[in-house]
Amino acid sequence: MKSPGTEQNVLSRIGVLAIQGDYDAHAEALREAGAEPVLIRKPEELSSIDGLIIPGGESTTFLKFLERDGFLASLRDFVRTKPTFGTCAGCILLATEVTHPPQQSLGVLNATVERNAYGRQIDSAIQTSETQLPGGPLEMVYIRAPRIAKTGAGVTVLAQRDGFPVLVEQGHIMAATFHPELSSDRRVHQRFVDLVRTHLKQHPR
């Protein structure tokens, strides 16, 4: 039993999938947003966290890795009920449908995501534009970015690029096709940390 009064001070433990990619940058961003980051490399480690970030990296590498040791099944269970935020490769993994080329996914974000949709590395870009987040324009770093080509029921679009969603929310799921962890602005991570806190209040450990 927790003693009364400590509730609002609970430090949320948020996992960062650390198979490969810029997981350290996410861990640092989480720390700055007031959460305790935990690097996750094995399926059993999922049981100790309140939320999860699937970072940028190579989505094929993530998948090959997850296919071993029943990791994919454990992760599917996790994302169904626990707050999860996917950036870039992570966004691809969360989608219900992936194209260019098609590949399997966790199928929890009601959207179709097209891989490498903007071209190769020479087409990577940094853009600053208005979003639904308070506090003015947001810098968005795109690295060989995917595109959310289509969204379905329940998906709220928080930011767009050329008419396509780049930051979305669906219940306990958040996804971005850019890399908020590579900017110094912490509003996106803050939003996810708040989402985890709210979820934790409604569904205590």
């Binding site: 198979i19 990619g21 990296g57 590395q121 940094i126």
Partner: peptide
């Protein structure tokens, strides 16, 4: 952007 891609290859 260049360093960004290198970040994605880490690990």
């Amino acid at each position: 952007l260049k360093v960004g891609l290198a970040e994605m290859l880490k690990g």
